[in-house]
């Protein structure tokens, strides 16, 4: 086991510990800071380990992103926090998809079947996370009507989307480099559309659950991206977030007395007692 693998294990354990601390009120602040610190260390490790710490463009992008993210986080009103979390989450998913695009465009001929397959998968999950999160955030912010929007034959359209995506992912795994570029663009458009179809039919009161689910997706997108480029640190942290996000989604469903299927089908909540903690954190 090399240096990078050891660092990966240490950081993954610290991040797990941070999440654990975040599930108790007394230690939650420490848990959050531990998470932030381990991410900071991870970035430095990746920069220096890959010998890319002297590329100025990278630092510029990080600096710009950090300033924008910080300002957005500081300016948002408490009541608007949930939609801000949704928005941030979508951006993370979009970032994973963009990484997959860059890797496909740059290195497709040298990629093995595993990398080709996972890169297409990262595109799907990443773009669905982006467009789904934007719709969810828009609904919470009341820029989009809050009631579920169900189109005619919604289930059929969704299933058809997934079926075509499945075919495209296969085509992107086995085809030529030129075909892969076309397939990737098609997968991008269709996945963005599917994210909208998936989130638009969820009612406003159920949005916290949807954002939690999309949160899990963005972790998954990161992990799949890690599979594509062969980075164990990205795989492990992404997988941890993906799994923990699914669990949290389940816990929230139970707290709101809803099943995930009901939520995703856009059936209106009959009882909604304990679950508004996310909609009104200031009153929580």
């Amino acid at each position: 086991m090399g240096f990078y693998e050891v660092v990966t294990i240490v950081l993954a354990v610290v991040i797990l510990y941070g999440i654990k601390l975040m599930s108790s009120p007394k230690t939650a602040v420490l848990g959050n800071r531990l998470g932030a610190l381990s991410m900071f260390v991870s970035v430095l490790v990746v920069l220096f380990y890959n010998g890319i710490a002297d590329v100025p463009v990278l630092w510029l992008a990080v600096l710009l992103g950090a300033i924008i993210g910080y300002l957005m986080a500081m300016k948002v009103a408490m009541i608007q926090m949930p939609q801000m979390v949704g928005l941030f989450n979508g951006l993370g998913g979009g970032a994973s998809a963009l990484v997959a695009l860059v890797v496909i465009f740059e290195t497709y001929p040298e990629m093995g079947l595993f990398s080709r397959f996972t890169s297409q998968l990262a595109l799907v999950v990443g773009w669905v996370t982006l467009s789904g999160s934007l719709i969810a955030a828009g609904k919470l912010d009341r820029r989009i009507p809050q009631q579920p929007l169900v189109i005619k034959g919604h289930n059929v359209v969704n299933a058809l989307c997934l079926l075509i995506l499945g075919v495209l992912v296969a085509a992107g795994s086995f085809g030529s480099a030129a075909a892969a570029v076309v397939v990737s663009v098609l997968v991008t458009l269709l996945s963005l559309g599917f994210g909208v179809l998936f989130a638009i039919r969820v009612g406003g009161a159920d949005m916290p659950i949807t954002i939690s689910l999309l949160n899990s997706y963005s972790g998954l997108a990161g992990a799949i991206c890690g599979l594509t480029i062969g980075d164990p640190l990205l795989v492990s942290v992404g997988a941890i977030v993906g799994a923990a996000g699914i669990i949290l989604t389940g816990i929230m469903c139970r707290a709101m007395n809803r099943s995930l299927l009901e939520v995703l089908n856009g059936s209106v909540a009959a009882v909604n007692l304990a679950g508004d903690s996310l909609l009104s954190p200031a009153a929580g």
């Binding site: 989450n89 990484v99 963005s218 972790g219 990205l234 977030v241």
Partner: peptide, 20 residues
């Protein structure tokens, strides 16, 4: 629930490692 979800949302930015 909310802060934990928010904290994990931040962690999903881990994809920065791949993007770099």
């Amino acid at each position: 629930h909310t802060p934990l979800m928010s904290g994990m949302n931040a962690l999903s930015g881990v994809t920065i490692l791949g993007s770099l």
